[in-house]
Design a protein around this nucleic acid. Structure first.
Lengths: 214, 214
DNA sequence: AATAGCTTTTGACATATATCAAAAGCCGTC
DNA sequence: GACGGCTTTTGATATATGTCAAAAGCTATT
């Protein structure tokens, strides 16, 4: 079935389109549609990669990574929603929000194999794909094209992170909120205000007031 | 000469050690010592990679990338210092500072081949290695181990960025300054205060006051 | 429909940081 | 060694955002 997407025919149209597929076909197909936008894998690589994908359906509130643990998997979100969070001075900080068609991971821990303060939890019942670091390392070594895929996935990640970094660096709370609405308006109705606020680096009260003045 | 470092014998000891080498042997050797901490390249890969390195000695103030341009090279700083910067509402923002033994690049532009507001300039007379995106792409395709190197370099980059992101997310100006002193104290004496301030996401006046109270 | 347990809003006030302006310090050059 | 052009500090004040507390709004359950 992954075959359907391999030619790139169905990749036109970006994220929205892919989400529709995930809804119809499930996480594995959605994942292959996603990675097809990065690299054309050989038949063998695709099979081997498929073999290490662990699909799972999990309820809202489920913890994918407990704070303080080592992140041994990354998760492709076929459907649902997750957040990466940690506690800073006793306050809950939302570090990242991952929507369908994107990846949830505690990136520093995953790359360094060291424990990290970050945890990951589901904000909605979700269908995911778990990929273990160990499996991935082996695939990297065996298949050049999967190594390339890894490079391109991280590249996409660093671009997103840099953009959020820029926002935090010198944009006002108002500007950051505006950018969020422009980029991913759907989050507003799916994520509690307090989490959105800390995602933006502000308090819930401030966000509420920003929202009040349009 | 690069051979000396290939066994990893000289990689023990981290950045400080590498800087000493760059001083003695020059940027190419320093670069190979740096990447040896990521991957053991084959003889052929090392030769081909060496062939595309463009060493250069440039004066303080030299512009490596003009704001608004496409970043077609990344630069390994063998000796010297650079900053990546942009203008936000007419104000000069220092986005990143690269010291000897690290890489200077406008990462979004380099990865997407799109123009970006960021520029790069030298803060000291420097000896660099320029590596073109085009050359690198070809090496990625031809050599699995260089593709891996690319993945690991970006991985190192995203870890650093995530750490700075965390700092900006919910640390006070004071905490950020403290972390800078703990991490790279040498910058204090080499970079004008205004640039350090905007690097930390605060104004020069605030940084000066923070400094005054120890 | 009343209760309980949430999330969100509003209010009063505190604080960190920014802004604008001027003074002080530093450094190389004539 | 005095001048001009920098960078850095200090001062007075403004502003955005945070904090703490209470009220209001939802939603599900009994």
């Amino acid at each position: 079935m992954g075959r359907l997407f391999s030619g790139g025919l169905f990749c036109i149209g970006g994220a929205g389109r892919r989400i529709a597929f995930s809804f119809i076909f499930g996480s594995v197909e959605s994942f292959f549609a996603y990675i097809a936008s990065f690299v054309r894998l050989s038949e063998e690589s695709r099979e081997e990669l498929t073999a290490v994908l662990r699909p799972m359906e999990l309820p809202k509130g489920h913890s994918l990574l407990r704070p303080g643990g080592v992140c041994k998997h990354f998760y492709f979100i076929g459907k649902g929603l997750s957040r990466t969070y940690y506690f800073k001075d006793g306050k809950d900080v939302t570090d990242w929000i991952s929507t369908e068609g994107s990846i949830a991971v505690s990136i520093i821990s995953f790359l360094t194999h060291q424990p990290d303060i970050r945890g990951i939890e589901l904000l909605e019942p979700s269908s995911l794909l778990a990929i273990s670091h160990t499996d991935l390392e082996q695939l990297y070594t065996r298949f050049h094209d999967i190594e390339r895929l890894g490079r391109l996935l991280i590249s996409a990640g660093i671009i997103q992170l840099q953009q959020r970094f820029d926002d935090l660096h010198f944009a006002s709370a108002h500007e950051r909120y505006q950018r969020l609405i422009d980029t991913t308006p759907s989050l507003i109705n799916r994520v509690p205000l307090g989490m959105i606020a800390s995602y933006l680096g502000i308090t819930q009260e401030t966000l509420s007031r920003i929202r009040a003045q349009h």
